[in-house]
Amino acid sequence: MSDVRRFYESLAEGARRSAPAALRNREPIAEVLQDWLPQSGLVLEIASGTGEHAAFFAERFPALEWQPSDVHPDALESTAAWREAAGMPNLRVPLVVDAASPDWPIDRAEAMLSINMVHISRWASALGLLDGAERLLAPGAPLILYGPWLEDDVETAPSNAAFDTDLKRRDPAWGLRRVEDFAAAAEERGLAMEALRPMPANNLMLLLRRT
């Protein structure tokens, strides 16, 4: 795993890594999750990154089983370390999940969540995320995403435009995606866009449901 992939992280303690953005956005995200997540069941988090969100949300939502995952070895190690430190019984051992692959080591979830993945992954990973939601989610179950997005007929914030440029400099396959493109691809896979909520720092949360 290259240092470029984790350009937003720093060491925390031992194997644990820390993303400053995770500390800033976890409370606003949790407030929306309170409305959008089911009351019980298993939440599969795709691309858990440092694992800080998983540990925080497992504590915040004790009635839910939280299943973190990632494809990067250092992210899995960090998530495992945060899990050990948190000591939450509803926080599972992280799984190796490559969103772009059709082979996931899990076959069901009551909800799926992905935070800040789509813009730092190839488009194939975004489509793979939707494919996985089609396979795993029952009708009515939510797929929830958080991050910076572009929207048709909505002026892009200068900070997001600059971020998009920087991402593409790091990897031409990265970059902010259009909500409309993602929603169209989701519809082809039996997922309907239900809600879009503005978040701090020019981010959005998207709620899609399996039809």
Rank of each mutant, 00 (worst) to 15 (best):
E110L: 04
P198H: 02
A192R: 02
A173V: 12
S125P: 11
N160M: 02
L95F: 14
R17I: 13
R24P: 01
M193C: 05
S40T: 15
M1C: 13
M193R: 07
V4A: 15
H72C: 12
H53M: 05
G49W: 00
D107C: 11
M117R: 03
V4E: 14
P198K: 02
A133R: 08
R122H: 15
D181T: 10
P102K: 06
D70G: 11
D153M: 06
A99L: 05
T156H: 01
P68W: 04
T79V: 14
T211I: 10
W66P: 04
D103V: 12
M193A: 10
V96C: 15
G190S: 06
R209P: 03
A100P: 07
W104R: 07
P62W: 03
F57Y: 07
M117H: 01
R60F: 02
V97Q: 12
E59G: 13
G14I: 09
G128Q: 02
W82D: 12
L208H: 01
E151G: 01
F7I: 10
P20N: 06
A21L: 00
S121K: 03
E65G: 11
R83K: 15
R17W: 12
A85G: 13
A47Q: 10
A185M: 01
R24I: 04
A124V: 14
G41W: 06
R108T: 15
P198F: 04
E13M: 11
V93K: 14
A21H: 08
R83M: 14
G14V: 05
D98G: 08
P172E: 14
A111K: 03
L44F: 05
D171A: 15
D181G: 02
N90F: 11
D164G: 10
D131I: 02
S2G: 15
D98C: 06
E77Y: 04
D153C: 03
S121H: 11
D98L: 05
D131V: 05
L143P: 03
S159K: 03
A55S: 04
A86Q: 11
L23C: 09
F56S: 05
W149H: 05
F7K: 00
L127P: 02
Q39V: 12
P89I: 06
D152C: 12
Y8V: 08
V93H: 15
L137S: 07
Q34P: 07
T156E: 13
L137R: 01
N90K: 06
R122A: 15
S101T: 10
R16L: 07
P200H: 07
A124D: 15
A185E: 14
S121M: 04
D171M: 14
A111I: 00
P73V: 09
V96Q: 14
D35G: 09
S18C: 11
W104V: 00
V179T: 03
S159Y: 08
G51L: 08
E9Q: 13
T79N: 14
Q39Y: 00
A58G: 08
H119Y: 00
M1F: 12
R189P: 04
V93P: 12
V32C: 14
E84G: 12
W36R: 02
D181A: 12
S18Q: 07
M1E: 15
G140V: 09
